[in-house]
């Protein structure tokens, strides 16, 4: 068990009621990634500089519009953590030399999609963690290269149809365990979150904010466009991801992994899958029992492995 830190977010109504991320972004209606970002930003506060990689959220700031009340720097798809390194180091130099007063300091956050986090940017992330960089990494994971039309990415789950996995069985590979890869670096903190569980998210960001060193957050980002569901279903899909156990909410700290919201009775995973057009071929014209059973078995095996941990 991780130590219990007093949280100010005990109930939903404790969450911030004013939102600092500006409206008017070009993100799709119902975007689960934007939902997570605004919740995270509310906790981090505007004294944050986001260093962004190529992905959907490249277009958060399109000249002359930015939703950030604080600062932002766009870098490239593969090197946002290195950009964070440069900003953090430069701020530290300025602070050490007294060229800026402490109140002018900024928290440094990296913001990338799964394409960058799970693939192209993994080397830069590994480097930043190993150097002990004091930063927070937020990955919005919509399980595909969403900005280019949802091609298969290193985060795409088994069986999902994507723009580059259009055959009758969908994507034949398996989603990479980025949480474990990050945790294997032994950073200060790693957590999974989802915007549809705002209290869990707020507590984790609150905790991460109080820490130093590398803190990395993966937010599953239900994606109406890429996953093919009606935007009004975003919260429902997200909640099902948690209730079915396919998206475990957990955190890593001091060498320990702790699950923060364990579904007491897991809903069958097909309830989650059948809400999404990308899995429609598993249900019609006839049910693909083998694939459904395989996905369910993987979820079951994951939780079976967790028994006794809590």
């Amino acid at each position: 068990m991780s130590e219990q830190i007093a949280t100010i977010y005990k109930r939903m109504k404790d969450l911030p009621s004013t939102h600092i991320l500006g409206a008017g972004t070009p993100m799709c209606a119902g975007c689960g990634g934007l939902q997570a970002l605004h919740e995270v930003y509310d906790i981090l506060g505007e004294k944050t500089v986001f260093v962004n990689a190529a992905g959907c959220m490249t277009l958060l700031a399109v000249y002359p519009f930015t939703p950030f009340r604080g600062s932002w720097l766009y870098t490239s798809m593969s090197s946002a953590p290195a950009g964070a390194q440069g900003v953090r180091d430069a701020l530290d130099i300025l602070l050490a030399k007294g060229r800026i007063p402490p109140e002018e300091d900024l928290a440094v956050a990296v913001l990338t999609g799964d394409g960058s986090a799970y693939g192209m940017g993994l080397s830069a992330t590994s480097g930043a963690i190993e150097r002990g960089l004091d930063f927070l990494y937020l990955c919005y994971d919509n399980e595909g290269y969403g900005n280019t039309g949802q091609q298969t990415s290193p985060a795409t789950p088994h069986g999902a149809k994507t723009a580059t996995a259009t055959g009758p069985a969908g994507f034949g590979g398996y989603k990479k365990d980025l949480f474990a890869i990050w945790a294997a670096h032994r950073p200060a903190y790693v957590a999974t979150v989802i915007g549809t569980e705002p209290l869990d998210l707020a507590r984790k960001i609150e905790k991460a904010k109080a820490m130093k060193g590398p803190r990395l957050i993966i937010a599953l980002a239900p994606c109406p466009t890429g996953w093919d569901f009606d935007p009004q279903q975003t919260v429902e899909v997200g909640k099902l991801a948690v209730k079915t156990g396919i998206w475990p909410l957990k955190e890593y700290e001091n060498g320990q992994v702790t699950h923060t919201k364990v579904p007491s009775q897991r809903v069958p995973v097909e309830e989650y899958l059948k809400k999404q057009g990308r899995f429609a071929h598993l249900f019609a014209p006839q049910r693909d029992e083998a694939t459904l059973a395989e996905i369910q078995a993987q979820v079951d095996a994951y939780w079976a492995g967790m028994e006794g941990e809590q």
Binding site: A82, G86, D89, I93, G127
Partner: peptide, 26 residues
């Protein structure tokens, strides 16, 4: 001066540009 070893030249120039954009001589 502060020196940091990056994991590639791509990251090195990213960090250089980011630090210059933050306000130090790189």
């Amino acid at each position: 001066c502060r020196m940091v070893m990056l994991e590639s030249e791509h990251s090195m120039i990213t960090a250089a540009g980011a630090a210059a954009a933050t306000g130090v001589r790189v």
